[in-house]
Design a protein around this nucleic acid. Structure first.
Length: 480
RNA sequence: GCCGGGUUGGCUGAGCGGUUUAGGCGGCCGCCUGCAGAGCGGCUACACGGGGGUUCGAAUCCCUCGCCCGGCUCCA
């Protein structure tokens, strides 16, 4: 296999650097996952699609990626909203965790090697915090345990935030927490009366309470991936303070570099502004699915590089839908041609031209992806390959050459997470069968059983079995 | 106020000093087709926020002004 140096933009050093994992071919990658307190919107999903894309490409380049994405199931909002909904915290977060995972599946975002929930790692967090307190990096106060940022000289390096120049916003300056410096952050929060009454607390050396937000990623990352990990990614808003705080905690405790490459995905915008629940301008995943395929959304995401802002419009979604349909048509045309007549068994100029175009496209596609996952450029080469195949198929096809071209094309699509094997029911088949079964049902109601049975028999011959149930007829493929 | 990102044709999106300046979507015209669809071929958009400068030559480098967005607070 040839060398494929991958270059990745690292937030810490503010430049692209050649990617080298600590223990090749293994790559440890951690992506900050969602807080499960509501429906995911398409802004969240952009980040996770980018993470998936990066993982796919590293895998394709021969790395063995161990991929962790946490689920934050205990923090202010999950506690507040579960209470408002009259549910236990666990019921509430389990529900939205399920909603989130379903979204990943629909978008063909591969499940992480592990999706650890914060509540499952509290003992390890307590241990971690204890270590920080013993080391003098953290102190106990009236309402919790805080990290003392004065004890970490590198604080601010990741985000470029110089705290001495930071304007004290009203909220920070006037906050009511009992900490020594307004910039110190909570590692452990002592339980409030409401939390005590609802049973939302864990035992600790500092009494009943719960972990702060930042600590979970440091702890679960260390537990599952080790003290130094290769890649840590997340939305751009997490750079400060979340990731800055993680660095401070982790490196204070271990004395080792926490993360080798920091990746941050830019926000999805709508109408030029950040999409956010509080702004009331967010578009949910379900709203997209009412009008568009998950494939189209995925294409829309990758039409821009992950580090550039992306503006959502319905017009852009339609454009993505059209484009993705054409890419899919090529797949159908290939299938048709491979099932068609064998009227070309030769390797001539057309075949040579096809394979040369396809291979050049594959090469250029890979070079673009190696360059900080530059999907818009890669898509240009994908279209070149699709075009070469479409053009070739206008004439008689040499199935060997075509199959080779199609293999490359499918490989490119797979790298982008497009047109993989579908899970669940095939929508097209479903619609056809709904029409056929509707017709048969009409016949049965008219007591024309002979014809209805004939339909059933014919479908059986075709490998589709029919079962009448109280809720209507069901169908399934009985053989491959 | 401090820090960061952006500003290219109807929309999107490459380009990072100079060959014909991608690609996609849309639109238009052909071919193919019983019709439709799919596909193919061609055309359309020669645009680079404003103003200076460097250079034989700038969307690309420098200066300056403007506008948009994000972070500095829970947030993908």
């Amino acid at each position: 296999m040839r060398e494929h140096p991958i270059r990745i933009y690292d937030t810490m050093t503010r430049r692209k650097r050649q990617f080298k994992p600590l223990n090749p071919p293994e790559v440890t990658m951690y992506v900050c996952g969602p807080t499960v307190y509501g429906e995911p919107h398409i802004g969240n999903l952009r980040t996770f699609t980018s993470g998936d894309l990066i993982r796919r490409w590293l895998t394709r380049r021969g790395y063995r990626v161990i991929y962790v994405m946490n689920i934050t199931d205990i923090e202010d909002k999950t506690i507040r909203d579960s209470g408002a909904a009259g549910k236990t915290l666990r019921e509430f977060t389990d529900h939205y965790t399920g909603v989130f995972l379903r979204g990943l599946d629909l978008l063909q975002i591969g499940r992480a090697t592990a999706h650890p929930r914060a509540t499952a790692y509290v003992p390890q967090m307590v241990e971690f915090i204890s270590g920080l307190v013993e080391g003098g990096f953290a102190y106990e106060a009236e309402d919790g345990v805080y990290f003392d940022i004065d004890r970490f000289p590198g604080y601010g390096r990741l985000s470029g935030v110089d705290l001495s120049k930071t304007e004290r916003t009203e909220r920070v300056a006037s906050d009511s927490y009992d900490k020594e410096d307004a910039q110190d952050f909570a590692l452990w929060k002592k339980a409030t009366p409401e939390e005590l009454s609802r049973g939302i607390f864990f035992e600790s050396p500092w009494g009943k309470g719960r972990p702060g937000w930042h600590i979970e990623c440091s702890v679960m990352s260390r537990e599952l991936l080790g003290e130094t990990i290769d890649i840590h990614a997340g939305g751009e808003d997490l750079v400060f303070p979340h990731h800055e705080n993680e660095v401070a905690q982790s490196e204070s405790l271990t004395g080792k570099q926490f993360v080798r490459f920091w990746l941050h995905m830019r926000f999805l915008k709508v109408g030029g502004r950040r999409m956010g629940k509080s702004l009331g301008n967010y578009v949910s995943f379900d709203q997209i699915l009412e009008k568009h395929s998950p494939e189209a959304l995925r294409y829309f995401y990758i039409s821009t590089q992950y580090r550039r802002p992306l503006d959502f419009t319905w017009q852009a979604m339609e454009a993505a839908e059209n484009t993705v349909r054409r890419l899919g048509n090529t797949l159908d045309l290939v299938d048709d041609a491979l099932r068609g007549p064998d009227d070309n068994l030769d390797y001539g100029e057309r075949e040579d031209g096809l394979l040369k175009s396809v291979r050049a496209g594959e090469e250029a596609f890979g070079a673009a992806m190696d360059d900080d996952f530059d999907t818009p450029v890669a898509l240009g080469h994908l279209h070149a390959v699709a075009g070469a195949i479409n053009e070739y198929i206008t004439g008689p096809a040499n199935k060997g050459a075509l199959a080779e071209a199609a293999r490359v094309y499918r490989g490119m699509l797979g790298a982008l997470g497009l047109f993989e094997e579908r899970r669940g029911p095939d929508e097209a088949a479903d619609r056809v069968m709904a029409a056929v079964l509707g017709l048969r049902d009409d016949l049965r109601k008219a007591k024309n059983y002979a014809f209805a049975d004939m339909i059933r028999d014919r479908l059986t011959e075709a490998g589709v079995t029919i079962q009448d149930t109280a809720g209507g007829a069901a169908w399934r493929m009985s053989k491959g």
